[in-house]
Design a protein around this nucleic acid. Structure first.
Length: 360
DNA sequence: GCTATTTGACCCCG
DNA sequence: CGGGGTCAAATAGC
């Protein structure tokens, strides 16, 4: 396995190098065109992301271990990008009862700080395209405000394990810290663009949000929407505080009604590997089943890409690295084309080499 | 009646 | 053992 891993790693490094150079090219190109600041900023981040990713990879190659990732330990998908892998098998296959608690550790985690500026007309119910269901609230030691726990509404229906926590800041009540865990794997969200989602999916209850928690949820949705529209009075920051944990592994695919079993792990691994190759544009999967591939590729909604894309680039490159490794989305191969992926592609490094190819 | 929220209890981990 | 995270019964809203 080790040879394969090294090969994988080399390929990865090569691809990253190439991507980095291309991104630099693009940057120079855009420099001459007086492009917008955000564009340049993104590019800056992209380049630095590649740099970081490369240095991480090289470092791990030297040390002979996987990425300095703590959070990936138990994810079967870490295998796709990680030289290590099948050794770390103390995962999902045991104690189905405790799997929930295992997943706490497995799922990628990152947080954002969301500032709500009053008087910016953010009263309306804004949806991020995902429906969240509150499942708990807890008083946190040392915090003035309780922490609310939300999970994806489709957790049971589709096995979507995405959750988020919302904690209002002590000092600044207008600031909310939102911690996300896991990516959405639910399909529902992918069928709606952010704007449609925000318009269509407002439930009556959310319309009448008067209670505190509902306000909170509303605020979150606003915050996520704002990430799409960037800078309309809301300030959204990604909190890098969890860098150590924030390794952006891909969460389990969580096939509906098909809990991950040891047998499936290999398939998952395969899918990951193939997707990875796919991203790099060097390999076309010969025998991936359409149904399976679709269900894995497309649940990543535009909103989601916004959630995970821009935010990532705003602050993190480590997560980018892992996105590069395993992001299950391939705009270039997507049958639904680039409709909503115009800037999502920018968000997702895996596609960058392809995109950049058009510029060079 | 269905769905979402509330809230106290429970469980795991450090 | 205490804190954080989750469960699930009770409750509320539509």
């Amino acid at each position: 396995m080790e040879k394969a891993c090294n090969w994988e790693q080399e390929t990865l490094i090569n691809e990253l190098n190439q991507g980095r150079e291309l991104a630099n090219k693009l940057k120079n190109y855009l420099d001459t065109m007086k492009s917008t600041e955000s564009c340049e900023y993104l590019l800056q981040k992209i380049v630095s992301s590649y740099d970081k990713a490369l240095s991480m990879l090289k470092l791990s190659a030297l040390v002979g271990e996987t990425f300095p990732v703590t959070g990936m330990l138990e994810s079967p998908h870490s295998t796709a990008g990680s030289p290590r892998s099948e050794g770390s098998d103390r995962d999902c296959k045991d104690q189905s009862n405790k799997i929930i608690f295992k997943k706490r550790k497995i799922l990628p985690r990152w947080s954002e700080k969301v500032t709500i500026c009053s008087g910016t007309g953010l009263e309306g119910p804004i949806d991020d395209g995902h429906s969240w269901r509150k499942y708990g609230q807890k008083d946190i030691l040392g915090a003035n405000f309780p922490r609310a726990y939300y999970r994806c509404t489709h957790r049971h229906a589709q096995g979507c394990l995405a959750t988020k926590q919302v904690q209002r800041s002590d000092e600044d009540p207008s600031l909310f810290e939102i911690t996300y865990r896991g990516r959405h794997t639910c399909i529902q969200a992918s069928h709606l663009t952010p704007k449609f989602a925000s318009l269509e999916r407002k439930s009556p209850k959310q319309n009448n949000a008067h209670s505190q928690p509902q306000q909170q949820e509303e605020i979150q949705r606003q915050s996520q929407e704002i990430k799409v529209n960037f800078g309309t009075g809301l300030k959204v920051e990604i909190e890098p505080g969890e860098l150590g944990i924030r390794k952006e592994i891909f969460p389990s695919f969580s096939f509906p009604s098909t809990p991950i079993e040891p047998e499936n792990l290999e398939n998952h691994f395969f899918l990951e590997a193939m997707k990875e190759n796919n991203f790099m544009g060097t390999y076309s999967p010969p025998f991936i089943s359409p149904a399976t591939s679709e269900s894995n590729y497309f649940p990543l909604s535009p909103q989601e890409m916004n959630n995970f894309g821009i935010g990532h680039h705003l602050q993190s490159s480590e997560s980018d690295l892992t996105d590069i490794i395993s992001a299950p989305t391939s705009g270039t191969n997507s049958p639904i084309g680039n409709l909503d992926f115009s800037h999502d592609q920018v968000d997702f490094d895996p596609d960058f080499p392809d995109i950049l190819a058009y510029f060079s």
